[in-house]
């Protein structure tokens, strides 16, 4: 096998092992951050600072009884969580996580392998990521419909509505930066912003950035828009009948999607993994991704839910016209 193949396999392992671990760790971070913002302590007792809480939760999820309701469609019911978790990681195939690097030759076996920045540098990277993330919403949809529970049905109806609406906004908001860069590849996005902080696309496309963030919150069903599992209205939405490992897979998928959206925001709008002055690129990149991840938790602590009709109003009467106008202006500027 040549150096690149080994490197790609290493990269795949990195994504599967580390990112899924981080996705699990995200639950801990979320609980801690939310706790601090409400002046609580959060998980404290399992391990130092409650760090082993995720392990405890994992053990609990693994050993919990796996219940499938009597009237549920058993095949679809067990398929749905797999869709969410799998698509979340498939989307990461086209995500650049750090600059391409070569493993030093001194290491045995894997020495000299070139680890690429993305697993698959397909030239339509961003569309691929958005497409697979969209396919991931089949998870909640099928889960809600298969469980023969009215809360589940309402949850999946909301999934359909939310997805069909906000997919438009995500696509349109990313379209303006695509027009400026002239490519759909995540690597090209990164390279286009190599010229320091002033070349970041966020300065040229502030509206697109805000629109993308809002739509990203909706697509990962984070708090201002988490209609799918509004506890106060529909118990747990599509998750009502799930327990144990299947429930955990939905959770991992959701957090992996949050990481994906954070990475897209960092690469497309905030300079990617380019070096900035003396700070090395990958460190800065991690900082950016962590900031966007933190922003999602922060918004959850600060803002209340919206009503479904408010959300549709926001999407079709505010965000979509704004996105179209933004594209129009960008198009005129690019043409001139």
């Amino acid at each position: 096998m040549d150096a690149l193949t080994i490197g790609t396999i290493i990269k795949i392992l990195i994504i599967l092992a580390i990112v899924s671990a981080i996705a699990g760790f995200g639950t801990y971070i979320e609980r801690k951050v939310l706790a601090f913002m409400q002046r609580r302590l959060g998980p404290m007792h399992v391990g130092p600072f409650g760090l082993l809480q995720i392990a405890a939760d994992g053990i609990k999820l693994f050993t919990k009884e796996d219940i499938i309701p009597q009237n549920a469609n058993k095949f679809i019911f067990s398929l749905a969580p797999v869709i969410t978790a799998a698509t979340a990681f498939i989307a990461m195939a086209a995500l650049p996580l750090f600059p391409t690097f070569t493993i030093p030759k001194s290491l045995p076996v894997i020495g000299g392998a070139i680890v690429p920045s993305t697993v698959a540098d397909i030239n339509i990277g961003i569309l691929f990521i958005l497409g697979t993330m969209a396919a991931g919403l089949y998870g909640p949809l099928l889960a809600g419909m298969a469980q023969s529970n009215k809360w589940g049905i309402i949850g999946s109806a909301r999934t359909a509505v939310q997805f069909l609406s906000y997919e438009v906004v995500t696509g349109l908001s990313v379209l303006a930066p695509i027009m400026l860069v002239g490519s759909l590849s995540m690597i090209d996005f990164n390279d286009a912003q190599a010229g320091g902080i002033t070349s970041w696309l966020i300065w040229q496309q502030p509206i697109a950035f805000v629109l993308f963030l809002i739509a990203g919150f909706a697509e990962t069903n984070r708090t201002p828009f988490d209609l799918l599992e509004h506890e106060a209205e529909i118990v747990s939405g599509y998750l009502t009948e799930y327990s144990g490992l299947r429930w955990g897979m939905f959770f991992i998928g959701e957090y992996a999607n949050m990481i994906t959206i954070s990475i897209i925001a960092a690469v497309v709008f905030c300079g990617g993994y380019n070096d900035l002055a003396f700070i090395s690129g990958w460190f800065l990149f991690v900082l950016k991704v962590v900031f966007f991840f933190f922003l999602m938790l922060w918004a959850r602590a600060a803002w209340p839910h919206v009503r479904p009709d408010q959300m549709m109003w926001l999407c079709w009467k505010v965000l979509m016209p704004l996105a179209v106008i933004n594209i129009l202006i960008t198009g005129i500027v690019v043409m001139l």
């Binding site: 951050v33 601090f36 913002m37 409400q38 002046r39 609580r40 302590l41 404290m44 922060w298 918004a299 602590a301 600060a302 803002w303």
Partner: peptide
Amino acid sequence: ELLKGLGVTFREMINALFKGKMHTTK
């Protein structure tokens, strides 16, 4: 106005973490 909400929660977090205003009784 949305940023003000973010500001309040962030201030509370700083208060809790660094100014000893954690409210929890263990």
